[in-house]
Design a protein around this nucleic acid. Structure first.
Lengths: 221, 221
DNA sequence: TAGTGATTACAACGGTCATTGTAATTTTCG
DNA sequence: CGAAAATTACAATGACCGTTGTAATCACTA
């Protein structure tokens, strides 16, 4: 009766977890490369080095697998981005230089996790055919979590007197940071569909940081 | 020998053009609704009220049809957006009010042509599997053409003394307009995947226009 | 080491779909 | 009208794919 794909509670056995993660990893690659519809179960199983039957035993069906992959990948990327924020704000002294360094890595996230963002492009294209709660859940554990972390760091920098940011404008500042840096690059590259020359990339990022500092930088800096 | 799907030169006969456009229209709807892979040729033929064989006679194969649909749709949307620009800049007097009106319609373009932008989301998701020249051609007759028109109008408004825009900063101003208005809304709505509350939409647009005027508005206005 | 559960190989089913050939039919143009 | 071209209905082909059942094998745990 109880399908094992829906609510896994106890992967008691030892090897199961490894199999499971191998499948998730392989599926992330294949889904990202081929898209949901073109990606065949057999191809995923082969990529993961696993029998296709095992895959069904773990995730029920293709849609369940995709959901699991999306959430797993989102958590991984969010964690990475949050670590990146920690790292940069830890040594945050000179707004201009430090924010530029952050921006370069921040925006480069799309190239650091290409499979994940290919996945995101898939769900955006198929959004109207996906359950709304899947989309909301993705937003919650993905972009929104990242932004919340960013907001916290910006606020802290504001309290430290390094940026003109307080509770009043923190939301807007967070949104503007994302828009001026990642948003600018993504708009210009058609969400990463077209390649962007490095010089253009750098100019956009630099411009975005300047824009941000023009709004939220302290006069004396 | 000569496939008819590649380089159509002379649709001599009368009815052919109507059939062709019926197919393009139907294909645009079905491709936009179901995506490239899920959209079946039979479904498109039915939607267009045409035999599937006729469809093959016109466009060669599915990929050729998709290409034709994309270009056709891009031209249509570009034309519409350019007309929109004409209309607004024709009566351009008060930067604040007029730019806000323009922005609302400009950004609303994604909802005025839903099928087209669904198509765009498809090609963005499948970009790595599409020939690069198709992507470049789309950019040329689509977004880039629209931006060129916008640039012209902004420059004219600059020459008229209504905006602080000249040859020097026209490119950047054009990019910023797109980023602050449409870019802001698209970033927030995950490229239109998630629904956006009207109040949020309006706030984003208003904020974008203010941002733009802060950079390119004349002091006295 | 014995037993339990996970994994595997294998085969099969049912369905969908792009594409093509063909002969009949309709439309268009001179 | 009459020829040429376009369209249609129809059937068929070949391929791919999600999913399931089954029996044998393997890995882990007790």
């Amino acid at each position: 009766m109880a399908k094992q794909g829906e609510t896994e509670q106890k992967p008691l056995r030892k090897g199961m977890l490894e199999k499971r993660q191998a499948i998730l990893k392989g599926a992330r690659a294949v889904f990202g490369r081929d898209g949901y519809t073109r990606a065949s179960i057999d191809a995923i199983a082969a990529e993961a080095g696993v029998s296709s039957r095992t895959l069904y035993n773990h995730f029920g069906d293709k849609e369940g697998l995709f959901r699991a992959v999306l959430m797993d990948s989102s958590v991984a990327v969010t964690t990475a981005q949050q670590a990146l924020l920690e790292r940069h704000f830890h040594k945050f002294r000179d707004p201009e230089a430090d924010l530029y360094d952050l921006a370069v890595e921040w925006v480069g996230g799309t190239e650091t996790h290409p499979e994940h963002f290919a996945l995101v492009r898939q769900i955006i294209a198929e959004a109207s055919r996906l359950p709304l709660d899947v989309l909301r859940e993705w937003q919650r554990i993905g972009p929104k979590a990242t932004r919340a972390a960013l907001r916290g760091h910006l606020l802290e920098a504001g309290r430290a007197g390094l940026l003109a940011i307080d509770e009043e404008n923190a939301d807007r500042a967070t949104r503007h940071w994302a828009l001026f840096t990642a948003g600018a690059v993504q708009t210009e590259s058609a969400q990463g569909a077209l390649p962007l020359e490095p010089e253009v990339f750098e100019r956009l990022v630099r411009e975005g940081v300047e824009l941000f500092l023009g709004l939220y930088g302290k006069p004396q800096s």
